[in-house]
Design a protein around this nucleic acid. Sequence first.
DNA 1: GAAAGTCTGTTGTTTAAGCCACATTTTTAT
DNA 2: ATAAAAATGTGGCTTAAACAACAGACTTTC
Lengths: 218, 218
Amino acid sequence: MISSELQKLVLFRNMTETEILDALRGLHSMEKHIKKGSIFLHAGDTTNAMGIVLEGSVTIESNDMWGNKTILSLVGAGQYFAETYALLPDEPMLVDVRANEDCRILFLYIGYLSESWSSGSWKEKILKNLLLISSHKNLQLSGRSFHTSPKSCRGRLLSYLNSISKQKHSLEFDIPFDRQQLADYLNLERTNMSKELGKMQNEGIIIFRKNHFKLIQP
Amino acid sequence: MISSELQKLVLFRNMTETEILDALRGLHSMEKHIKKGSIFLHAGDTTNAMGIVLEGSVTIESNDMWGNKTILSLVGAGQYFAETYALLPDEPMLVDVRANEDCRILFLYIGYLSESWSSGSWKEKILKNLLLISSHKNLQLSGRSFHTSPKSCRGRLLSYLNSISKQKHSLEFDIPFDRQQLADYLNLERTNMSKELGKMQNEGIIIFRKNHFKLIQP
DNA sequence: GAAAGTCTGTTGTTTAAGCCACATTTTTAT
DNA sequence: ATAAAAATGTGGCTTAAACAACAGACTTTC
């Protein structure tokens, strides 16, 4: 993996190439390739490493003993996962992490951050950037809470579609989920959700085809 | 407010009294008293200050235009709120913050953290502690996601009661919510939830009286 | 290009949550 | 102590979501 690829990431913001290389060494970084569909971090385990998605995407999901799946978030290229658990290495993970496509993942053992603190170093910068990342992650988690808080199927769909629309600054956009994943993310039953999407299209509120959606204003 | 009261807080962990006082000055800290029931941070606004609950408790809630309320979390004495928004001061808040009882709140303008960074100072320690706090907040938010992901009333109640029981290391405990608040936290309808609690008591799964609950193992 | 597999949508039935009106209990105020 | 107010629980009706079974469309693979 090339450090120029990393310089764009929030985690390495404001850092020189030398500092990034020092950081990669200091944090025992390690790149892995992971096949689509496989769960490579398991609920109940603990982890010392956070992950950066270099290529592909992963889903953060909970699978209970009755086979119900909940997708808490989708983490795309250039984004981070498990940083919370890596920072709190005693906490067992509540979720599974699954490769949504074939992936290239960079693992960083951020526990080494607190070792032998020398000021002005890359550690300080990483720390600041981690705080930013953690805060953004917080916003994302709250975001999902809002999409799942309406009690009706339509309410959740509208909450989700509106937020994506605002994110993309357009009434027309692609969503990153297929139907089953969208249902799992919004805690809905897939076929029922399809029904509702159909109704909404008939009523002229939305137009969609596959993953492409368009919101219609009255 | 006395700095000895603050030394126990995670935010000031590993800091001397002098450093804490420097930090309070540097972050333009300000103590306020707030009356029960009043909303003192409003969704849509931005904020530069994070809050520490010195006395009382606050709820983080979303109130939509149809009068539906969702309680995202309850923040008790010694805990923090709005740190995410204070760290990302351009993000409009998605939630209201309401005093759940009469409160003493300490506000800190943590934007001043990034000003004139001198290493080895209190700023570095605060930064590390903030990252811990943010990570814990992440866990809390995920936690609620799990309580609201079961589709059934009983599933959500059991998820919530079990997690409190584990937290308190006991099958018998008080919960911090009244019935309406619990329903708002679990995204349920109050009277329906009451019915379900009644059923569960009849079946001998739980015993409760007011806010005191006891889980019965088979 | 045929076959297998995946994804999406449809119909109909069952079940449980939402909701309203009201009864009962508990707390607060005077 | 009594009245007023708030919190909690009950019964019954309505409605919408879950679930199961299946049909059609689209992909992938060989």
